[in-house]
């Protein structure tokens, strides 16, 4: 199609807007990166913008040697791996049987599950149940109570629906049972959705803090990195943010805080672009069937 001059100008205007959007997304990250690599003095003198000033990696060395930080990072990583495995197992176990039209009671199971999307008991009843189960203040409370998301289960189920039924039927004729059909047909064909949902679950756990805040009490040993970060940021910035005059914040603390933010974001930022192709289809699947 031949484009008129004015529409070509329009294309560049749109591209410019997109460029501004990209800058809006990237500049805050660059600012944090610059701060994490700057000297305390430069930060106190408000000299750091997008490029580190008074280059030093003291903050990173501190975070990597201080046991409170290293343990929190390691613990959150372990927790994320455990939660992702548990959640994926539960999601597969839930979604696969529900794809069988012949399954007796399928409607009942589906209704039972979908209803929880529309009506939830609320925070306090859940809290009281967890208390009665003896889970409060224990690390298990970060794993089990939210290990299965209905929304992600629906995404998985719609992906399974997309696999031709003839494959399953011919395997059944060959005498394969559901477990064999799942492991040798469905799972190998579902790599995109498995990757997508693993990413979603992992990001959710890595970024989550409200369950730790509400259910872990004072068991600080098991605070995930986000909650630790929150406490650090609040303690540093409470003076800065809550007073109009605003005292200058202690420089080294601020570089440490910036370095912690980098540690907490970089793992995700390294992974998600590679999975983009997959999660786009995953996110769309869920939306259509909701």
């Amino acid at each position: 199609m031949i484009k008129s001059k004015s529409s070509r100008v329009g294309d560049y205007i749109i591209a410019f807007i997109c460029l501004l959007l990209m800058l809006a997304c990237l500049l805050p990250m660059l600012n944090i990166l610059a701060r994490s690599l700057s000297s305390a003095q430069a930060i106190i003198r408000n000299e750091v913008f997008l490029w580190p000033k008074g280059w030093n990696i003291e903050a990173y060395r501190f975070v990597l040697t201080d046991s409170k930080y290293t343990w929190s990072l390691i613990w959150t990583a372990i927790l994320t791996v455990i939660c992702t495995i548990v959640s994926m197992t539960m999601t597969i176990l839930c979604a696969f049987p529900l794809t069988y039209d012949k399954l007796k009671g399928r409607r009942f199971f589906n209704t039972l599950i979908i209803l929880t999307m529309y009506f939830s008991a609320g925070t306090i009843p859940t809290y009281l149940l967890l208390k009665d189960l003896g889970m409060i203040n224990k690390p298990i409370v970060l794993i089990v109570p939210n290990c299965l998301s209905v929304f992600y289960m629906i995404i998985m189920r719609s992906y399974f629906y997309g696999i031709p039924e003839s494959l399953r039927e011919s395997a059944e004729i060959d005498g394969a049972g559901p477990i064999r059909i799942l492991t040798s047909i469905y799972l190998p064909l579902s790599k995109p959705v498995l990757a997508t949902l693993s990413l979603f679950y992992a990001v959710g756990r890595w970024n989550g803090f409200s369950d730790a805040l509400m259910f872990l009490g004072n068991n600080r040993k098991y605070y995930p990195i986000q909650l630790l970060l929150y406490n650090i940021i609040k303690s540093i910035t409470s003076i800065e943010v809550t007073t109009q005059e605003g005292f200058a914040t202690p420089g080294l603390n601020e570089t440490i805080q910036a370095a912690t933010v980098m540690f907490a974001t970089v793992p995700i930022l390294m992974v998600y672009p590679w999975l983009q192709k997959y999660f786009i289809s995953g996110a769309t699947l869920g939306a259509i069937r909701e």
């Binding site: 805050p28 990250m29 970060l229 800065e240 907490a264």
Partner: peptide, 18 residues
């Protein structure tokens, strides 16, 4: 993909009064 804690951290660096 950023948690609200991280966004808060960034916001403070960007928008704090001084």
């Amino acid at each position: 993909f950023l948690s609200w804690i991280i966004i808060y951290g960034m916001t403070v660096h960007l928008l704090a009064p001084t």
